[in-house]
Amino acid sequence: MAVGKEIRTQIGSIKNTQKITSAMQLVAASKMRKAQERMGATRPYADRILDVIGHLAHANPEYNHLYLEEREIKRVGYIVVSTDRGLCGGLNANLFKQVVSELGRHHGAQVEVDLAVIGSKAIGFFKSFGGNVIATAGNVGDNPTVADLIGSVKVMMDAYEEGRIDRLYVVYNRFVNTMTQSPTVQQLLPLEKSEAFDESLGDHWDFIYEPGAARVLEQLLTRYIESLVYQSVVENLACEQAARMVAMKAATDNAGSLIDELELVYNKARQAAITQEISEIVSGAAAL
């Protein structure tokens, strides 16, 4: 039957797309579980080292490490963590919006901005958007190691040490739950004081450092920055999978309702054609 041939092909192609999106949804769901586990596993370390650093910021070291002093802000650095692949809803778009608004704020205050970007999507975005990108790391994959990220982090830390930037932030998506991911800007350098702290020590105290303040601080602070950036990349990965799962679920549902609508149209057209044929036959017979 010639009727509704186009509609049938359209239904077929939507069904194929639906198969793809529902497969992607399942893959994302299983990857998300893994990413979430990884995120949960690294969190205690990140939380603890944050505590330690918070305590340090309250102490009064005889040795003043560069990472602890506040400087006048003339130029700031951002490490932007994005995903490598698309099809994950508004995840990257929301993150970039946040970065762009930060850039606007700094521009208004006559502060210049350097960017280090992680993830292919951010590399692509800032290539077209502009911005002073000084380091990139793409294709970190589903199983990032600290070694993959260390390059771009090192560039930023060197820049901070040499005084080319006066503040360093990391921007990533914080994993709230499967449905919610919130773009977050976190200050890395100089270190922020932790709010929850045992005040019994008072203002004038310091740690005993073994083997020496300079060496301990150097090692600890470097480790801290690495762990924070690593944690944010791992968290962003969990966000990516969650966002993709939700986006693909929506796409599958939409395809389903589209198919329903088209099938209705198709059936109506088919019935109309049959009715017409019958009436043609009947009127033909009556004319005889």
């Binding site: 330690v52 305590h55 340090l56 102490a59 020590l201 105290w205 310091d206 740690f207 005993i208 450092y209 073994e210 083997p211 060496r215 301990v216 090692q219 600890l220």
Partner: peptide
């Protein structure tokens, strides 16, 4: 390290 130790950081 026992309770009441003074603040310390070591590698």
């Amino acid at each position: 390290v026992t309770p009441g130790h003074s603040p310390l950081i070591t590698t």
